[in-house]
């Protein structure tokens, strides 16, 4: 087992967890759904793994089916996730400044 490599990856994991907690802990309630939807899109990064599996050389039929299905799911996840988040955020509008109360 390559411990050096494993420890390096664990370091990255822990730091990523801290970044995640730090960046997201201040999100207002208004954005809970878009945030969740955007993080949904980001875990679509699994499509990278799907590409590696589906693009590997010398595969049997089972691997081809599994790999293709994984790419299918991953593409659905990434494209759908980002597009639906954009659609949601497009709707979030501030009250126009010409409001009577701003006198």
């Amino acid at each position: 087992m390559d411990y050096a490599n494993l420890i390096q990856q664990l370091t990255i994991l822990v730091l990523a967890a801290f970044i995640g907690f730090e960046v997201i802990s201040k999100v207002p309630q208004t954005l809970h759904t878009p945030l969740m939807s955007a993080t949904n899109a980001i875990h679509g990064i699994v499509i990278v793994g799907a590409l590696i599996v589906a693009g590997a050389a010398s595969q049997g039929t089972v691997q081809v089916i599994l790999g293709t299905l994984a790419v299918f799911f991953g593409a659905l996840n990434v494209v759908g996730g980002f597009v639906v988040t954009d659609r949601m955020l497009e709707m979030f509008k501030k009250k126009p400044a010409k409001n009577e109360e701003t006198a």
Binding site: N5, A17, T39, I42, V46, G49
Partner: peptide
């Protein structure tokens, strides 16, 4: 052995 997956996944896990 893919850092993009580790970081991307963990950030989502945290959020």
């Amino acid at each position: 052995g893919n850092n993009a997956l580790i970081v991307g996944g963990m950030i989502v896990g945290a959020s």
